[in-house]
Simulated assay, not measured.
Amino acid sequence: MKVDLGDLNAFLAVARAGGFREGARASGSSASFLSEAVRRLEAELGVRLFNRTTRSVVPTEAGKGLLERLGPALTEVESALDVVNGFRDRPAGSLRLNVPVSAARLVLPVIVPPFLEAYPDIRLEVITEESFVDVLAAGCDAGIRYDERLEQDMIAVPIGPRVQRFATAASPVYLDRHGRPQHPSELLGHACLLGRFASGALTTPWEFERDGEVVRVEPSGPLIVRVGGATDLTVDAAISGTGIICVFEDWLRPHFESGALEPILEPWWQRFSGPFLYYPGRRLVPAPLRAFIDFVKASTRQA
């Protein structure tokens, strides 16, 4: 049996993206190209790999089995081919990162432009996702997460600010109307703007700390948004006077400086360690990822 490697990659793109159009966008090809490649692969293997309807493309049992084994295998093939990169004057190829929206907004903007300028032959793709994922199974080379969400078999490299804080704030108009809380427990009497993780859990309790005293409160309010992509809606609502927000201090800093938002309970803001770039320790590191790791380490030393 002689199966084309390109057809296998096409199958992988469709399976991971959940459709031909989505797979085409992710892989930079066309839906018709992927469809034809999958048809060739199914004909060569003699089995149907996808159940297709007008609304969905779902792997069959055979497709699921192939997907489970194929992803790691093709990753190893890519790693083997990447050895050639070591003989180039400068690294080339693709680098895919899986990061939360907060990292895409607060960490990567100061890293990505100078990195791409230093390595013009590298094509960087950033996928935002709030839940922790197996980066290899997701077709990514590395991810960014916080230390409490890292698995033990991952190698972690500090990236971005090493200390961060969650900040609480509201618009001056809201605070003039409803009062300025002096203790976290007073938040229970205010309209608070909340988030919900992809798992369904709310971003509560809000946790505060001062002089060794830890206070956790379960606030409520008129607005709940999905953590990540909809966080800016919460910020806009807070600026408009809808209620009190609790989010990364760096996310709110421009609005503190403009006066659109006023910090509250600042002595109680809890500190936590910054994010990490993580990648599997059980595989050869591709040249684009190695270049990115070295660039991040150099940036951290200079900070």
Score class of each variant (00 low, 15 high):
Met1Ser: 14
Ala13Ile: 03
Ala13Phe: 03
Val14Arg: 10
Val14Thr: 06
Arg16Phe: 09
Gly18Arg: 05
Ala24Cys: 01
Ala24Asn: 00
Arg25Ala: 05
Ala26Lys: 09
Ala26Leu: 12
Ser30Ala: 07
Ser30Val: 07
Ala31Asp: 06
Val38Lys: 03
Arg39Glu: 11
Gly46Ala: 11
Val47Asp: 00
Phe50Thr: 02
Ser56His: 10
Thr60Arg: 07
Lys64His: 11
Glu68Ile: 11
Leu70Val: 10
Gly71Ile: 15
Ala73Leu: 13
Leu74Thr: 07
Thr75Ile: 08
Ser79His: 11
Ser79Asp: 15
Ser79Val: 04
Ser79Pro: 00
Ala80Val: 07
Leu81Pro: 02
Val83Phe: 09
Arg90Ile: 05
Pro91Phe: 08
Leu95Lys: 00
Arg96Met: 10
Asn98Ser: 10
Val101Thr: 12
Leu108Gly: 03
Ile111Thr: 05
Ile122Thr: 03
Ile127Gln: 12
Thr128His: 02
Ser131Gln: 11
Ser131Met: 10
Phe132Met: 07
Phe132Lys: 03
Val133Leu: 11
Asp134Arg: 03
Val135Phe: 12
Leu136Lys: 12
Ala137Gln: 13
Cys140Arg: 12
Asp141Ile: 04
Ala142Leu: 07
Ala142Val: 04
Ala142Pro: 00
Asp147Phe: 14
Glu148Ser: 13
Asp153Met: 11
Val157Cys: 09
Gln164Tyr: 11
Gln164Asp: 12
Ala167Glu: 08
Ala167Phe: 09
Thr168Gln: 08
Thr168Ile: 09
Pro172Thr: 04
Val173Asp: 14
Tyr174Val: 00
Leu175Met: 02
Asp176Phe: 04
Arg177Phe: 02
Gln182Thr: 13
Gln182Ser: 14
His183Ala: 08
His183Ser: 06
Pro184Trp: 12
Glu186Thr: 01
Glu186Ser: 07
His190Trp: 00
Arg196Asn: 05
Phe197Gly: 06
Phe197Val: 01
Phe197Asn: 07
Thr204Trp: 09
Pro205Met: 13
Glu207Ala: 14
Glu209Asp: 12
Glu209Ser: 15
Arg210Glu: 13
Arg210Lys: 15
Asp211Lys: 14
Val217Leu: 07
Ser220His: 10
Ser220Gly: 14
Pro222Ser: 15
Ile224Leu: 11
Val225His: 13
Val225Phe: 06
Val227Ser: 15
Val227Lys: 13
Gly228Asp: 01
Gly228Gln: 08
Gly228Met: 06
Gly229Leu: 15
Asp236Lys: 14
Asp236Ile: 07
Ala237Phe: 04
Ala238Ile: 07
Ile239His: 01
Ile239Tyr: 03
Ser240Ala: 15
Ile245Thr: 12
Glu249Phe: 12
Glu249Gly: 01
Asp250Ile: 04
Glu257Tyr: 05
Ala260Cys: 04
Glu262Tyr: 01
Trp269Val: 02
Gln270Met: 15
Ser273Thr: 09
Pro275Arg: 01
Phe276Gln: 08
Tyr278Met: 05
Pro280Gln: 07
Pro280Leu: 12
Pro280Thr: 06
Arg283Lys: 11
Pro286Arg: 07
Arg290Gly: 10
Ile293Thr: 04
Val296Ala: 08
Ala298Ser: 05
Gln302Leu: 15
Ala303Met: 04
